[in-house]
Every structure is written in C-alpha cells, then in structure tokens.
Design a protein around this nucleic acid. Sequence first.
DNA 1: GCCTGTGAAGCTATTCACAGCT
DNA 2: AGCTGTGAATAGCTTCACAGGC
Lengths: 222, 222
Amino acid sequence: MPEGREKKTGDVSGRTIGRLSLYRRLLTDLARDKIKNVFSHQMAELTGGTAAQVRRDMMAIGYNGSPVHGYDVAELIVSIDDFLDAPQGTRMCLVGVGNLGRAILSFFAGRRPKLAVVAAFDSNPEKTGRVIAGCRCYPIEDLARVVAAERITVGVLAVPPEAALGMADRLAAAGIKGIANFSPLPLRAPAEVYVEDIDITMSLEKVAYYARQGTVREEKLS
Amino acid sequence: MPEGREKKTGDVSGRTIGRLSLYRRLLTDLARDKIKNVFSHQMAELTGGTAAQVRRDMMAIGYNGSPVHGYDVAELIVSIDDFLDAPQGTRMCLVGVGNLGRAILSFFAGRRPKLAVVAAFDSNPEKTGRVIAGCRCYPIEDLARVVAAERITVGVLAVPPEAALGMADRLAAAGIKGIANFSPLPLRAPAEVYVEDIDITMSLEKVAYYARQGTVREEKLS
DNA sequence: GCCTGTGAAGCTATTCACAGCT
DNA sequence: AGCTGTGAATAGCTTCACAGGC
C-alpha cells in the first residue's frame, strides 16, 4: 500500500450509518438549544437506543469523547459530517414527480446543502419544463444528458411499479452510483449500484400485523 | 393452558413479516399470470433473497410445499393472508394531509381491502371537511371521536417533525395500537403501541453514503 | 435429479461488564 | 461517583448442508 492514507470507510455497518444520520439531526437540535456537551446515555434516550450502542457508533467513526464531559456537540457534528458527507456534496435526481416525489422534493428543498435534489424527471409532458419546489423538471429522454451534465450520483425512484425496473436500468446506464427505490418491489441492479429499497406498503403491513398482536414491542428504524 | 388453540403468532421476526408482505405481492403477480406453482429458488430470485431464507419463512407461517411442485401459488397466498391480516381487516387513519400523506392515501385507495385508510386528520381548516382520495378529512379535534367510531387501530403519522410527538400521544390516548411514523425522529410511545419509524431522510443519506464508496454491495429492504 | 424441511454452523449486531480516567 | 472505550458474551438472523421424498 504505497502512497496516501487509506480512508477507513466501508467497514461500517449500514445500521450504524443510519444511526449516524439520526444522531446528527439530534445534535443539530441540541446545538440550536446551545447545549455544548452530551453523554452517551442522553443520546441513547433521545434516539431510542442504548448507551453502549451510541458508544460503539462513536468508535466506528473514530470520535473520542471525554469521560468528564461526554461528547462535544459541535465537534461531534463535524466528525459525523466528515464521515457521512461527500466533501463536494451529493447531487441527486428524482425520477417520477407524483405525490410521493413532490413530498420528497419539498422536504429537501434547501434543507441540507450537502444533499440536494438538482433535477427531476417525468414522462408526463404536463410536468416537464416546469420548476417544482425549486427543481427543474425534465422529460425522461433527457435523463442521461442531465445526469452527466449535473454530475448527479444518486437517483430517487418514485415511479409506478411497472415503470420502476426500466427506470432503474436507465439510471444505472447513466452512471448513477446509488438508487433510493420507493417502488414496492426490490430492484435488481448491477453490482456497482447501491440500492436501498424503501417499501412503504411493507412498512404499513408490518404495523398492521403488530397492531393486531397486542403484546409485541417496538422495532427500531425501518 | 385450558381451552382454545393458542395462535402461534408473535414468535416471528419483524424481518420475516416484512418479507411475507413482499412474497404476497409477488405471488399475486404470479397468480395473475396464471402461474400455479413456484419453487423457493424462484421466489428468492424475484425478491432478492436466498432460497434457504424463503423456506425458513415458509416454516415460520407453517406452510408446507411439495418437493415435487414447490409451493402452490394460490394456497400460499391464502396462508400468508391468514397469517398477516386481521380477519376483519385493519382500519387506519392518516394524520397530516401534506404531500406525503396524500401520496400514501392515493397509493392505498381501494388497493387492498384488508388494509384501508378510512379517515384523515389535519389542523389546516382548508383541508378538513373535504374528501381526499376517497377519504374524509376531519379536524384534529375530532381524532379521538372518529378513531373510536370507526374502530381505527393504526395511525399513519405524516406531520411536520415539531408536531409529531404531540400527535403520537393523541393517537396513543385514542387507543390506537400501532403507528407508522414518517417524521424524521424516533417516537417514544407507550409500550402497548407498536411504532415503526420510516425515516426517509435517513434512507437518502444512507444511499448518498454508499454511493460515494464505490464498492459496497446492496443491503436489503429498508 | 431436484426439490423441501430443518438441525447445525456461521455471521452480524447488540449488550454486558469492567478497566481506566478524572 | 460517573463517565468513556472496549474485550467478551449474547442474541438474532442467515446460510450451509444434508436427510427424505418423488
């Protein structure tokens, strides 16, 4: 291993990545309330985990707290930013401007500068050409061109199920590196594309199931 | 244990419940295509799992296939229905009729009779009184009354983060048994209420993270 | 041969529990 | 006394691998 520091990412579990995202939002709230330090058991309380788990997650990103003051809120936010965010930010596109797509757009509009939806695509000509929640909407035909021009690396797939597979292929072909798939069937994508399936129907059926059995306890984080 | 057959539910993992929901949709598609039988390896292929896992999940619901013909599609659908669905169906309500809420409403409108959104609630008087995607919209004040009158057991929470905790409490107080929480912070609810957190922000940040590391492989099912 | 059902093994994630620090 | 960091133990989930059946 001749030159350069090997970045020690990739050996961190997906669960931990998810929790880091959660911790960061929590810490941002704490910082807004002018809270300077926080203990693992407090973070656990607020995020619904255990203190030991919080400490393990801190280990994963190599952040060290102090036994006296716990974790420094501002420092920890920076550490998580460094770990999670691409330095230049991540540029995403939305495919499928339906209700769900619009919900995602308006949710992210201007929120987190490092994670921006910079283009949307739809097959319906009534939607293309317009600007929705601050995001230009293009026809599907322009996908490859815009993805390349805008240096987009992540696609958010919110199209009807029957269109999902085809669109995933187009995204992969356009050089996208990750897909968030909201359609209710798992995608089979080329190995170099990371796919996260967010299956809302499944989640609701799960809730319905457990709501019926009185006795079962909370299951964390979708 | 004096009388009655003890229903052997509750000992099945949440992961399995989720996959069963997925299998059922897959099987419904197969049935529509007049396919009568299916092997575990085929189901695995189509759902992105392994054959061994499919067989384990069949064990969990006590369904037995035949070594010769594999699983009978129609029978298996019935078995999964029996296992997952409440006999009288599950009546849900939506709290928060924004973009996301409407997306969920239109997605479920008339789709699955055993899982119906029968009421919606919003604090905005412009939305209340109307019928959206076939679903009557009430003011928040009517929540407890309507939940009781309509025998609603599941709440779908799609309100802005700052309102989420309060609404969760109202749902719990109204006697709801399960909550699907779409707000970007985990809920702390009374132990008898099952909570499933569906954290879209977290999912997108996860995709962004893995999209940056080229090399990491797919992680199944949110 | 090719399937299912399943005990046993293997993995991964979480929790325990304690040394070390202040 | 009360915290962090972490090896060791535990729990939970998935895969292996093979017996049994046609």
